[in-house]
Amino acid sequence: MSTPDTSTPAVVATRLRKRYGGTTAVDDVSLRIEQGEVVGVLGVNGAGKTTTVELVAGLRRPDSGSVRVLGLDPHRERGRVRQVLGVQLQHASLHAALTVAELVGLYRTFYPQPRPTAELLELVGLTEQRTVRFERLSGGQQQRLSIALALAGRPRVVVLDELTTGLDPRARRRMWAAVESLRDEAVTVLLVSHTMEEVERLCDRVLLLDAGRVVASDTPAGLVASSGADTLDDAFVALTGKSLEVVE
């Protein structure tokens, strides 16, 4: 087996545009993510974060523009992309009456070289809940299970739309540790975040979205420096004119 060519960018999106009815959700977004990068997407509600990552993941078709994941077209080469791309969706539910272990076992069968069930459950801290049905899990536990399923196939690129929103501090730190272990394995991560603390700790680079456009793309420290602010929170306000704090 040849070693994967790391010069191919993990994600290249070119001039993505997506409208829903009269609303432009994503307006001319271009981005490039190198393999092994951990990139955060920040923005207030309605900034286009979810639409952007869903376009990247090939779950929606752009009205115009193109996406490549490891050089592959997520629509035309769906089968190959699905194998190397793990996705956690924001509003997707799972078979309600199946247990944690049953769901992990099911999703593992979709991939040629799945991660062991025990390892996945340990990673997201659900080992003790393995016999609990999905419908009886707390919201945070459901979210963590959904992250475990995104990692089931040993993806090389992971899109996480809701990493820690609504998680308690302990679960949040656990998810951060999970992302850090992905970084150690040189997995590329694109994560939607709502907190500065999170992107400062995890991300090599931050994409700042506002009204469907990328208004900044830099390292967390670079964003602070270029905006003349003292903190990333202030940088966000300076660049978008909005406060991230109003977001739940």
Partner: peptide, 22 residues
């Protein structure tokens, strides 16, 4: 990553299309 993968890989290192089995 495992080295036991039976498939050949393409230039960019992505495996060929795979479908869940029986």
């Amino acid at each position: 990553m495992s080295t036991t993968h039976p498939h050949t890989t393409t230039v960019s290192g992505t495996p060929p299309a795979w479908r869940p089995g029986l």
